[in-house]
Simulated assay, not measured.
Amino acid sequence: MRIDIITCLPRLLESPFSDSILLRAQKKGLVEVCVHDLRKYSTDKHKKVDDYAYGGGAGMVMMIEPIVTCLRALQAERQYDEVIYMSPDGERFSQRMANELSMKKNLIILCGHYKGVDERVREHFVTREISIGDYVLSGGELAAAVVSDAVIRLLPGVLSDETSALTDSFQDDLVAPPVYTRPAEFEGIKVPDILLSGHEQKIEEWRFKQSVARTKNRRPDLLR
């Protein structure tokens, strides 16, 4: 997979992709993440990528020209499955969507900033808009990192135990059951006996019941 992220603040994306699972995935050659500085595609001598909104109002708007120039330069090199715009009013990101995107080959993620991008970009060049929640961030960079992380960890070979991702919360519309590790007793607080029994089928049944109960309690909307 290849993920190209377009941003006017590329340094915000240095850390998420330079450590842990995402770094190992890149070193293994399982994913290529390329961050593109939008200012390099500006024709303005000061490398501006924003301007005042027509009709007035507070805040600046990201200009159409540098965005489209960058998109066309990337699309001239390869075919992209999606051009994604990170937006508070986009489709709500979910594990199901992460699963779907993990089956794609090439993705472009456009990070909004200021008051957003010129609407013509959204109407004519973006194929999908995604939101990570009903709140507003300073820009789309952190949201792009969230989506990329959720997608990349699903790629075959990224996790040392590939079954791990299949038992994550939301994979079956349930939250994950409680988990425990050593010691079996700490300050009088014990691990449930069933987990120490070695009876695999009964353990799985217990975990499923715990997932259902926890989902009913914490996320009843998932059961609907």
Rank of each mutant, 00 (worst) to 15 (best):
M1P: 04
R2Q: 15
R2I: 06
I3M: 08
I3Q: 11
D4L: 01
I5D: 09
I6G: 13
L13V: 01
L13Q: 05
E14C: 00
F17W: 07
S18R: 11
S20F: 10
L22Y: 12
L22Q: 06
R24A: 09
K28D: 09
L30P: 08
L30Q: 13
V31A: 07
C34Y: 07
V35L: 11
L38I: 06
Y41L: 01
S42K: 05
K45W: 02
K48C: 01
K48Q: 13
D50F: 00
D50C: 00
D50W: 02
Y52D: 13
G55V: 05
G56T: 08
G56D: 12
A58Q: 13
V61D: 09
I64V: 11
P66T: 10
T69V: 05
C70A: 09
R72G: 01
A73T: 13
L74H: 11
Q75C: 08
Q75S: 09
A76W: 00
E77A: 11
R78E: 12
Y80N: 15
D81S: 04
D81R: 01
D81K: 01
E82A: 00
V83L: 06
V83E: 11
I84S: 02
Y85Q: 02
S87P: 04
S87K: 05
G90S: 02
R92D: 11
F93Y: 12
F93T: 06
F93H: 07
S94Q: 13
S94V: 10
R96S: 15
M97T: 11
M97G: 12
N99K: 11
E100I: 04
L101D: 15
S102T: 08
M103Y: 05
N106W: 01
L107N: 14
L110T: 00
L110R: 05
G112P: 00
Y114D: 08
K115D: 14
G116T: 06
V117I: 12
D118V: 02
D118C: 02
D118R: 09
E123N: 12
E123Q: 14
F125L: 06
T127V: 04
I130V: 15
G133L: 07
G133H: 07
D134P: 05
S138G: 10
G139Y: 01
V147H: 04
D149A: 12
V151K: 12
I152T: 09
L155E: 15
V158C: 10
L159Q: 15
L159H: 02
L159R: 13
E162D: 15
T163V: 03
S164V: 02
A165R: 11
L166P: 04
D168W: 03
S169T: 08
F170V: 06
D172H: 10
D172S: 01
P183G: 07
F186L: 14
G188K: 11
V191K: 14
P192M: 15
D193M: 07
S197M: 08
G198D: 14
Q201I: 05
I203K: 12
R207P: 03
S211P: 07
R218K: 13
R219P: 08
P220C: 05
P220R: 10
R224M: 04
R224D: 08
